[in-house]
Amino acid sequence: MNEIRELMQEVMTFSEERDWDQFHSPVNLAKSIAIEAGELLECYQWSDIADPEAVEEELADVLNYCLQMAAKLNLDPAEIVRKKMKKNAEKYPVEKSRGRSTKYDQL
């Protein structure tokens, strides 16, 4: 078992022990991801500098819900990230996108 799968199992066990899985539909998990991402952004609301501990906690919440959603949808996080990176590499070839923040359709 790789580290991501082990972490997913820990997160799922935590939820199952509390009988929270009943609340974790894909739509509820997607909402929770967005909410926690907003809380992460709130750490930077008034400054480009944020409390590292607050950022760590909010980022952990985002990742927690992402792992739960992947498990709920029977997706392997490592596999889906690699798949998306392959698509991104095609959309953003190094020779056109290096050092630029331009969207792929404007390169």
Score class of each variant (00 low, 15 high):
L29Y: 00
S101W: 06
W46S: 07
E36C: 07
N64I: 08
L73C: 05
E56G: 05
L63F: 15
A78F: 05
M69R: 02
G99T: 02
Q45D: 07
M1A: 12
M69Q: 02
R100F: 08
Q45P: 03
P77Y: 01
R98L: 15
N88T: 06
N74W: 04
P93K: 11
Q106N: 09
E3N: 07
R100W: 08
K91I: 06
E56K: 09
E57I: 01
D51R: 02
V27I: 11
Q9H: 10
F14V: 09
N64F: 14
P77D: 01
Y65N: 01
A71P: 00
D51A: 13
C43D: 00
H24G: 06
V11T: 13
K103Y: 09
V27C: 08
A50R: 00
D61S: 04
E58C: 03
K96N: 11
Q106H: 15
L63V: 15
M69V: 10
F14C: 13
F23R: 08
G38V: 02
V81M: 13
K31G: 10
V81T: 09
L40I: 11
S25F: 09
Q106F: 13
R5K: 14
V94F: 14
E56H: 08
Y104I: 12
D105Q: 05
A34S: 08
L107Y: 07
R18D: 06
L59I: 03
D61I: 02
K31M: 14
D48N: 06
N64Q: 10
S15R: 12
Q106G: 05
Y104S: 10
A34L: 10
A70Q: 00
M1N: 13
S101T: 12
L67Y: 00
D19V: 06
A34W: 09
M12H: 06
A70L: 03
E3C: 09
K91G: 05
D105P: 03
I33H: 01
E3G: 05
R82W: 11
D21C: 09
E17P: 03
E79T: 06
A70N: 01
D61T: 04
V81A: 13
M12A: 14
F23S: 09
R98N: 14
C66R: 03
A60S: 07
I49P: 01
E36D: 10
I4S: 03
L107M: 10
E58A: 03
P52H: 02
M12F: 12
V94T: 13
L40V: 05
D21Y: 15
N74S: 08
M12D: 04
L73Q: 04
E36M: 15
G38E: 04
F23C: 08
K87N: 07
D61A: 03
T102Y: 12
S101I: 12
D76S: 13
T13Y: 09
D48M: 07
A70V: 01
K86W: 12
K87S: 15
E36L: 07
K84I: 04
A50S: 01
V62Q: 00
Y104C: 05
E39A: 03
D76K: 05
M12R: 07
N2P: 06
E58I: 00
